[in-house]
Write a protein that binds this DNA or RNA. Structure first.
Length: 807
RNA sequence: GCGAGAGUGGUGAAAUUGGCAGACACGCCAGACUUAGGAUCUGGUGCCGCAAGGCUUAGGGGUUCGAGUCCCCUCUCUCGCACCA
């Protein structure tokens, strides 16, 4: 009885691979070219793997196995991004230490990944919650601090009273907490902040050289949000003060008919006149209560209040009123704008609402009807009249700079990165506070380990649970012995995932985060596969840290991830996003139990292009499972464990070699180009052919097993063994196709008349390029001749493909 | 609203980049072997039409001997960003 039985052969090979460390990477072997293929760092959640995980993981595993066979030294690691809120929430509910929960989850994830047959080097597993790992996360933090890139600031954060904790922006959805849907308010709090803005320009520029999806690059560009313009200074009438604004349109300065400050702008209080004070205070009050949701929902209706103050337009000396309005954001630019209603949508709407003057300074539209934001000749603008926008911009900047009234300037949307979390289950920030100021711990005291706490609830004051451990918080400065207070904030989950790809390179290294010698060999990551949800934050933060480490001489490449691929989400069978509430979740364990890991792997790749969003189909799984069963029947006898007697060491026929070499070529090229679905189609085509052969040449069948192996490694290893090979096929040389076997004996021409196919013409290969011969043959065809009776206007001949007569 | 991407059979999708649209699968139909089949094998299957033939890649226009592929317009969907001056 030798039915294809994945539940027997799969564990056998998984044990073989893991037990004998078949995929341990030997990085002392520098004779081979290296290939670093990386999966995005998984968070080991309590619910285990979902079918989205194996999608990207199978793709990288195929590449890893293929590259090994192509003679590359392959680094293909996995590990755990294991800090994070869920384990802490669970601890609050049950009292179980997050470390215990985390280790349980990791164990489950590891077993699940091994059950899929991925060829990871398990000796390089990393775990962000391991002090031996986060020691170096802390070390990098100190590097950031040392380089002036980490600072403390009182910044408004998303305080959630119900959860008693501060939330990251991405955890706040429509003004409510992502978990639980509790209200969230903005509250200033002392935070550690990383100065990512200092790297804005480089983060933007270096996108150019990366082999990443254009959409991801574009999202990063938008997030960084560079805009070029000028800072312009407006003096205030009757005050010894001035307002600095940022504008991308300094050319329109003559059209600035009023100014707007953000309600939070520090000058508001100073300049507000007695008569306007009540109205201004009321407006500031109401604006502060508006949630982000309300602010965005009220986009259409602009509101604001006049402060009573006037400023002097530096271009023409005109007095312009100064307003406050919440359409101006305190967090962007200088928190103040010059309003040019003739040439800006928002200013135009505001001016219409409050009947402020609208002046045309760029021709091309009718500013009484709509703002004109396009190009045109400058008018009503003194020395700029007649210039176009680009020229007027640079003239105006020069003019402002001569008079000290402004400078050319660049602004970014990107903000500094709030790096504090008021939580327990994260890396402690290695800082103490002495005499009211922060002081980094000496590097030789690292790691600063997480102490145990009695209770995991937030302290309620907004501080992390660590603040409740008074004997931990109270410490002494190791250098001076003076009393000190420990930092109680911990790092965000991003921290560990910002540099894990470096730790894989030398997980055992004790002198730094990464061994410089091995780093030079392995970096950069050649292929990075993961979900599009990390298109901005993770990838931007990791790039930032990498550049800092580059500047610190820790790494030798400017960018960490050379090529990036985003796998598309897998939807449920109902075409909806998989979710518990919809009940459409597919559990990979069930699929493996019923069809085996090879079927799951194959199906996930066969569904369609990796990058595409696509719905799950159990029928589809059955389809690829049937394919594997057919492969099995081609190789194995029906009634025994023995190889089929049809497989014999005989010379292959031309046809057999042709389909084999076509398969080698197609599979090779498709893997190289990430087209795993069509590679599998070709494997099916080969097997469909092989089923028809009465005698199956051993050498051909041996080669096919190698081609199948990256996709369905368990079955391939089993068949390889049956074919008489004692060793794993993982390092067998990848088959190479030969052009001579691809040559066709004959070609079929489509004969068209006026672009419509009227006949098929099979021409012997030797004559296929002979235009005169083929055309003669085509004209002689009875059906074609019928259409040619009235003479031929033009003849088209495309060698080996098509003939077209225009009549 | 702005930005990016995508629309191909009943379904998932292919299409050497301008050369026979629908490979490979799923599903469906018929048959074979079967007590049975949700196993396996064989054949069929874009749409209309008895047929000859005609029509087909979201819709409309264009370039070309020839367009799923290139250009213009319209529609729809997905993702991202939301007053960024």
């Amino acid at each position: 009885m030798s039915e294809y039985n994945p539940s027997r052969i799969e564990p056998k090979w998984q044990n073989h691979w893991v037990g004998r460390k078949i995929f341990r990477t030997d990085d002392s072997d520098r004779s081979k070219p290296k290939y670093y293929v990386l999966d995005m760092f998984p968070y080991p959640s309590g619910s285990g793997l979902h079918v989205g995980h194996p999608e990207g993981y199978t793709a990288t595993d195929i590449v890893a196995r293929y590259k090994r066979m192509r003679g590359f030294n392959v680094l293909h690691p996995i590990g755990w991004d294991a800090f994070g809120l869920p384990a802490e929430q669970y601890a609050i509910q049950t009292g179980t230490h997050p470390a215990v929960t985390t280790q349980t989850n990791i164990k489950r994830f590891r077993e699940q990944l091994q059950a899929l047959g991925f060829s990871y080097d398990w000796d390089r597993e990393v775990d962000t919650t391991d002090p031996a790992y986060y020691r170096w996360t802390q070390w990098i933090f100190l590097k950031l601090y040392e380089r002036g890139l980490a600072y403390e600031a009182e910044i408004p954060v998303n305080w959630c009273p119900a959860l008693g904790t501060v939330l990251a922006n991405e955890e706040v959805i429509d003004g409510k907490s992502e978990r639980g849907g509790h209200p969230v308010v903005r509250l200033p709090m002392r935070q550690w902040v990383l100065r990512i803005t200092r790297y804005a320009e480089r983060l933007l520029e270096d996108l150019e050289g990366l082999d990443w999806p254009e959409s991801v690059k574009e999202m990063q560009r938008n997030w960084i949000g560079k805009s070029t313009g000028a800072d312009i200074i407006f003096r205030l009438k009757g005050h010894d003060a001035e307002i600095k604004v940022f504008s991308t349109r300094p050319d329109t300065l003559f059209g600035a008919t009023y100014m707007v400050l953000a309600p939070e702008h520090p000058l508001v209080d100073t300049i507000t006149t007695a008569g306007q004070r009540a109205a201004v205070s009321a407006y500031i009050e109401s604006a502060s209560h508006k949630s982000d949701l309300e602010r965005t929902e009220l986009v259409k209706e602009k509101s604001g209040v006049f402060t009573g103050a006037y400023a002097i337009n530096p271009a023409n000396g005109a007095e312009v009123p100064v307003w406050i309005a919440d359409y101006v954001l305190i967090s962007y630019g200088t928190g103040a704008i010059m309003a040019v209603p003739g040439h800006d949508e928002r200013d135009w709407e505001f001016a219409k609402t409050y009947a402020l003057p609208i002046v045309e300074v760029v021709g091309g539209g009718d500013v009484t009807q709509a703002p004109w934001t396009g190009d045109g000749k400058l008018v009503h603008s003194g020395f700029l009249d007649g210039l176009d926008v680009a020229e007027a911009k640079s003239r105006m900047i020069a003019w402002l700079e001569e008079r000290g009234a402004g400078t050319g300037s660049v602004n970014f949307k990107l903000r500094d990165w709030n790096f504090s979390r008021q939580r327990y289950w994260g890396e402690p920030i290695p800082v103490i506070h002495v005499d009211g100021g922060p002081k980094p711990l000496p590097v030789d005291t690292l790691p600063l380990t997480l102490p145990d706490v009695e209770r995991y609830e937030p302290s309620g004051t907004g501080e992390s649970p660590l603040a409740t451990i008074t004997d931990w918080v109270a410490t002494t400065d190791p250098e001076t012995g003076r009393p000190a207070r420990r930092e109680t904030n911990t790092m965000p989950q991003w921290a560990g995932s910002c540099w894990y790809y470096l730790r894989y390179i030398s997980p055992d290294y004790t002198l730094g985060p990464v061994d410089p010698d091995r780093e030079k060999y392995w970096m950069p990551v050649d292929l990075y596969v993961g979900g599009a949800e990390h298109a901005v934050l993770h990838l931007l933060y990791a790039r930032f840290w990498h550049k800092v480490l580059y500047d610190a001489g820790v790494v030798h490449t400017v960018e960490p991830f050379q090529k990036l691929v985003n796998q598309g989400m897998i939807l449920g069978e109902d075409n909806q996003k998989m979710s518990k509430s919809r009940g459409n979740i597919i559990n990979p364990d069930d699929v493996i139990r019923q069809y085996g890991a090879d079927s799951l792997r194959l199906y996930e790749m066969f569904m369609g292009p990796l990058e595409q969003v696509k719905p799950w189909s159990m029928r589809g799984v059955e389809g690829v499972h049937r394919f594997l069963k057919r492969v099995w029947r081609v190789y194995m006898q029906e009634e025994s464990e023995a190889l089929s007697a049809d497989i014999r060491p005989v010379e292959a026929t031309r046809e057999q070699l042709k389909v084999l070499h076509e398969t080698i070529r197609k599979v090779t090229e498709d893997i190289e180009n990430g087209r795993y679905n069509t590679a599998i189609s070709q494997l099916m085509i080969f097997n469909n052919e092989a089923m028809k052969w009465e005698v199956k040449p051993l050498e051909v069948m041996r080669t096919f097993v190698l081609l199948l192996s990256p996709f369905a490694p368990h079955m391939a290893e089993e068949l390889w063994e049956k074919l008489g090979n004692p060793e794993t096929l993982a390092y067998e040389p990848w088959p190479v196709w030969e052009e001579r076997h691809l040559a066709a004996d004959a070609f079929t021409y489509a004969v068209q008349v006026n672009g419509k196919v009227r006949a098929q013409l099979t021409v012997d290969a030797a004559l296929a390029d002979d235009q005169a011969y083929v055309m003669g043959l085509a004209k002689a065809d009875a059906t074609v001749a019928k259409y040619l009776e009235n003479g031929i206007k033009k003849e088209i001949f495309v060698a080996k493909r098509i003939v077209n007569f225009v009549v």
